[in-house]
């Protein structure tokens, strides 16, 4: 099915490409979603000092490793953007694949971590801390999965030299996913 590109899509009265504008607005709406989760978590955490005990069962090393993985994948996303700027779609696609690799590593480590925790009895209903832990990290993991899928599509297009501007857009999104984790990591793993 062929879809014509309307003229509207090509105009730019603000001088900012429409795609980038849209991603910024999308992120604005995402920021308030995570803001809602984290704000609620913080309020509860301050009201329940005893949750520190539950928090001490999280595995800081795994969390730290995942932080490292995400930061690295953000870096490869930047490299992909640079390649796309130069018009090198194949190289951009290569870096995107590396970024997807980062996402998959992150998810695999996460599944291992959750399996261990659930087997130890720390399920989502175990107590308030664990409810927030799985909800916040789960919401974030959903974003990682969505990002990886979209990145796959963008990479496939970029490989054929099409829609190279999207490499930048998915990069912006990926940085956001990364930043959310930067907030989650200290709040869920380090604060004990």
């Amino acid at each position: 099915m062929a879809f014509p590109k309307p003229q509207a899509t090509l105009r730019s009265a603000t001088g900012i490409p429409t795609g980038r504008l849209a991603v910024w607005w999308l992120l604005a709406s995402e920021v308030v979603i995570f803001g809602g989760v984290l704000g609620s978590y913080l309020m509860h955490r301050l009201g329940h000092p005893e949750w520190a005990e539950a928090a001490s069962h999280t595995n800081t090393w795994i969390g730290a490793f995942n932080t490292f993985v995400l930061l690295t994948s953000s870096f490869t996303a930047v490299l992909a953007h640079q390649a796309a700027e130069k018009g090198d779609g194949k190289k951009a696609a290569g870096f995107l694949v590396l970024t997807i690799g980062g996402a998959l590593t992150f998810l695999m480590v996460k599944s291992y971590e959750w399996t261990v925790e659930i087997l130890e009895g720390f399920t989502i209903t175990a107590n308030g801390f664990w409810s927030f832990y799985y909800t916040a990290a789960g919401l974030h993991a959903l974003h990682v999965i969505a990002g990886a899928i979209i990145m796959g599509i963008v990479a496939a297009d970029a490989y054929r030299g099409r829609e190279l501007q999207r490499v930048e857009l998915i990069g912006i999104y990926w940085h956001f996913v990364d930043v959310v984790w930067i907030f989650l990591f200290p709040l869920l793993y380090i604060a004990k």
Binding site: S29, I33, G36, L139
Partner: peptide, 12 residues
């Protein structure tokens, strides 16, 4: 867009 986020979190 700016107000619904926390409620989406709350709805989850």
């Amino acid at each position: 867009m700016l107000s619904v986020g926390p409620l989406i979190a709350g709805a989850v």
